[in-house]
Design a protein around this nucleic acid. Structure first.
Lengths: 210, 210, 210, 210
DNA sequence: AATGAATGAGGATTCATTCAT
DNA sequence: AATGAATGAATCCTCATTCAT
């Protein structure tokens, strides 16, 4: 059980240092956005000198992009619980929505920082923004596919509209909670959202069939 | 024969300078957020020296807050067209939703900058953020009231939930358009959104009555 | 005789500050070259904070270029004394050569810094280098013309070769003195140089005529 | 059947690494001078990590000095071709001058970097500068001696002056070519230079004898 | 009503160098 | 013989702000 006497504390442990830096950066960038994240602040929070941060990351852009990537993975791991595979499709979707809500409460950094970057329009687009938009597109695509299996009568266009609306609602509700804090019952709102999207899909399907 | 008292152009025209500064600031702050907006950049864009900006505005915080205020007014003027007062309630609401969509396409600065500020969590909250959240709360309250008159059977709680959902959807759809650009048919999405909210309200009302 | 009470010391005198900065920079850049000249060092030597230097000059490149320009003018003023207009052409040229030698002893910064920049080949050429090469070309052109009036039989090619050789010799002798210091009798060496160039010109002229 | 003891390639070949580092350094230092040569840049160019450079060289100063030494040897090998030992003294000197010109075209690093170092006057003189000045002094001394054998009537003073002038001219012509590039016919210029120095020596000798 | 000049604090990044492995 | 990681000092430059005019 004894830890090997590796950590002679200080002196070379690349992997751990990298994590420490990323941990510090998520926290700061999640609070203050791209410009607000100073290398000095990250350095202070993680304990490593600023110059060491540059050993692990090419520049600030690279660091923020790495943070987006890692926090997406963290978030993804939190959403994709072995969700209930039982019940009606509507029940299953409602459970999924609740899962997403919970994951956003627990690990909001990914989406908060991502939305901040997404809203910015600086001349030279930060790589972090690109990364965020990519993973977001993939997620939207996944939703489109899943919806397609549940509502086989819907055409591509309708599916895309529904997926867009689903994601947009999620973004908006997340923003609402970021503004108003713990008072908001995010899970309930997401369940309502799931219900409404379901209704919309049902109506669209009956229309396109009949 | 007296000189007309119209703008004698050049030489001390405070009002015009103020406008020039605000114009420059909306553009930059709308692109880069709070931290990304430097007084030097505003100065370069509006042509006035940095020190002149400080003659008109106490500090950066004051400047950004003024920008939020002014761009809210601009936006408000764009939304509150003498909207159609005829047709069924659902029709009227749909027209209103389309109006909001159009206004967000024409004058997106207010919401873009506002959301950026809203998502940030810096230690000392910028006044601009406070201002944004206030006008936003007022708007949400208005929606609650209007919905109350159309659905008199709904209780406070249901009305607040609906208003929240309506605003959140608007935010999310706006973000979607900011990301994906002109390709997005924002008006159509907002009309869909109006329809879904209406459905939700109807169902809630029938449930709470029956 | 009393100085006007202008200088309340510190506070705004753009022209003087600019000079102070340039003075400090010649000294440092003349000793250490482009890379060796740090803004911090200039700041320390001239007493103004680094940020003030950036009020007067766009960046380091701009500062060094300005130094080259100004020190060229200083040097030019020192060379173009109301030189002796009497005596044989050879005598007059010898006096001119001595003048150049003296000016290089008194104000060597222009040439020392210029040669340093000229020898460097960094990817993005500093503007100071460009400026130096330009004034140098102009000077060479002048020499070509003067020689042409004294030796009308020489063709363009010969004149250019002589001017090039004259300038190259001056450079080399200057470098020699920079290396070996005051021990070198630069004036004597320049007089010898003038004599040799004269001989060469004479021989070339007699050859091209005969 | 034993493994041949030629370079077994890869895995600890100190000599080769050293060469790689020196190669990279000549290139960079020849372009950017002392301060402009960063260990990181050398590391990037030669492929070895910065820390490996410190295994081979005590510090940056040591590295630059080594470069000067090695590039001097390279250059020397290029000059001292089995030069024509026939013809009149003037012819022999002219051939030598052409040789020097060719060597400076082929391997200009030694002189370019050396002159850069020579012109700088930093507080703590780099060892590379000392090395350069030493080999330069030796070369000048050699020229003095050779000239002494050809012109036995010239006194020490005259010989030193001639050698100085010869070296200075070479420096200046080299600088000229560094500035104006391949367009310059360095060989022709060096031959002219040799001729002029010869003339000067002849005149001095006749004067000191007569 | 406006501005040229100044300024200290802090921005990102690179520096030469070290040291445990 | 070599290197991954670390580090403090220095780099250039921008920041928000002030103040005398």
């Amino acid at each position: 059980m004894s830890r090997p006497q590796t950590t002679r504390k200080k002196r070379a442990n690349g992997v751990e240092s990298r994590q420490r830096i990323l941990d510090a950066t998520v926290e700061i960038a999640g609070e203050r956005g791209y410009e607000g994240t100073s290398i000095a602040a990250v350095s202070a929070k993680c304990g490593l000198p600023a110059s060491s941060i540059y050993w692990h990351f090419k520049d600030k852009d690279d660091l923020i992009a790495a943070v987006i990537e890692r926090s997406f993975e963290t978030w993804l791991a939190a959403v994709v619980l072995p969700g209930e595979e039982t019940g009606t499709p509507l029940e299953r979707i409602t459970v999924m929505a609740a899962n997403v809500a919970k994951s956003l409460i627990d690990a909001p950094d990914f989406l908060r920082l991502g939305l901040m970057l997404a809203l910015e329009r600086r001349p030279t687009e930060p790589r972090g923004r690109t990364v965020f938009l990519q993973v977001r597109d993939i997620a939207t695509q996944k939703i489109t596919e899943v919806t397609g299996t549940v509502f086989p009568d819907l055409d591509e266009d309708a599916l895309r509209t529904l997926a867009t609306y689903a994601v947009a609602g999620a973004d908006g509700l997340f923003v609402h909670r970021e503004i108003h804090g713990d008072a908001v019952d995010l899970v309930a709102m997401f369940e309502l959202h799931a219900q409404l999207v379901w209704d919309a899909a049902t109506r669209m399907a009956s229309r396109s069939k009949g």
